[in-house]
Simulated scan of single mutants.
Amino acid sequence: MTEVVAARMDFAHHGWDFAADQLDFYLANHEEGTRYTIRDRDMRQVLATSDMRGRIENAMSEIKTNAKRAVLANRLLYGMTMEITTDWAPAGPSDNEDVHNALGHYWMSVGADVVVARPADDGSALSALITSRLYVSDFYYFHGTVGGTMGAELDRACVWLEEAGSARSYRANGEADIDCRSETLP
């Protein structure tokens, strides 16, 4: 327990509140099935990472392609709200140390409400109003977030704490608005 509390204090010392909160929740040994809801401030950190920005850009491209396919296959969908969501995809580790120590590797998906405007008669490109949201899911089991010998020791200590019933792995979920904007469809 001493090593784990020292890690928690180190997280706090560096200002890594997200990582410290996750470790606190783990050590609180909540009832099995209890989920941790990632706070808005922490989701803003996730959104700001270069890793996530790239993944969101790819997801938005997929959403725009799917919206265009849908309206070309069924013209009745012009002006209608379509809910389009990407498949869950792996994300992380992050370039943000707080996010990295809080989540490590995790899963992300982007959901969007898409309204494609009826095309103009002049043959111009299709456009759509897209309101998008990021979804994040992680199974927290303190492992591999801290590097080197200290990390291996912490991993062993946390496994021992969990096996002894003094800590519990859990699911963490979060969501955040990404954007609402008009886009040209490819």
Results as ranks from 00 to 15, higher is better:
residue 22 Q to Y: 05
residue 23 L to Q: 05
residue 24 D to Y: 07
residue 25 F to E: 06
residue 25 F to C: 07
residue 25 F to A: 01
residue 28 A to E: 15
residue 28 A to Y: 08
residue 30 H to M: 09
residue 33 G to A: 09
residue 34 T to N: 10
residue 34 T to F: 07
residue 35 R to S: 11
residue 36 Y to R: 03
residue 36 Y to S: 04
residue 36 Y to D: 01
residue 37 T to L: 11
residue 40 D to N: 12
residue 41 R to M: 11
residue 42 D to L: 02
residue 42 D to N: 14
residue 44 R to W: 11
residue 44 R to S: 13
residue 44 R to C: 08
residue 45 Q to K: 15
residue 48 A to Q: 12
residue 49 T to L: 01
residue 49 T to P: 07
residue 51 D to S: 14
residue 52 M to K: 08
residue 54 G to T: 12
residue 54 G to H: 13
residue 54 G to F: 11
residue 55 R to D: 11
residue 56 I to Y: 10
residue 57 E to H: 13
residue 59 A to G: 10
residue 60 M to A: 09
residue 60 M to C: 10
residue 62 E to W: 13
residue 63 I to M: 09
residue 63 I to C: 05
residue 63 I to P: 05
residue 65 T to K: 14
residue 66 N to M: 11
residue 66 N to E: 13
residue 67 A to H: 04
residue 67 A to K: 01
residue 69 R to A: 15
residue 70 A to Q: 03
residue 72 L to C: 08
residue 73 A to M: 08
residue 73 A to S: 13
residue 75 R to S: 15
residue 76 L to I: 03
residue 78 Y to I: 04
residue 78 Y to G: 02
residue 80 M to A: 10
residue 80 M to V: 11
residue 80 M to C: 01
residue 81 T to I: 12
residue 83 E to K: 14
residue 86 T to W: 01
residue 87 D to Q: 14
residue 88 W to C: 01
residue 88 W to V: 06
residue 88 W to R: 09
residue 92 G to Q: 03
residue 92 G to E: 05
residue 92 G to N: 00
residue 93 P to L: 00
residue 94 S to Q: 04
residue 101 N to Q: 00
residue 104 G to P: 00
residue 106 Y to L: 00
residue 106 Y to K: 00
residue 108 M to F: 00
residue 108 M to R: 02
residue 109 S to T: 09
residue 109 S to E: 01
residue 109 S to N: 03
residue 111 G to V: 02
residue 111 G to I: 07
residue 113 D to K: 13
residue 116 V to L: 05
residue 117 A to R: 10
residue 117 A to W: 06
residue 119 P to F: 02
residue 120 A to Q: 15
residue 122 D to H: 07
residue 123 G to I: 04
residue 125 A to W: 06
residue 126 L to I: 05
residue 127 S to G: 07
residue 128 A to I: 03
residue 129 L to P: 01
residue 130 I to V: 15
residue 131 T to P: 03
residue 131 T to D: 14
residue 131 T to S: 15
residue 137 S to M: 13
residue 141 Y to G: 15
residue 141 Y to V: 09
residue 141 Y to F: 15
residue 142 F to M: 08
residue 145 T to C: 02
residue 147 G to A: 12
residue 148 G to T: 03
residue 149 T to W: 04
residue 150 M to V: 14
residue 151 G to Q: 02
residue 151 G to P: 00
residue 152 A to F: 07
residue 153 E to T: 15
residue 153 E to C: 06
residue 155 D to G: 03
residue 159 V to D: 10
residue 160 W to K: 14
residue 162 E to N: 07
residue 162 E to L: 01
residue 162 E to C: 04
residue 163 E to L: 11
residue 165 G to R: 01
residue 165 G to E: 03
residue 165 G to S: 00
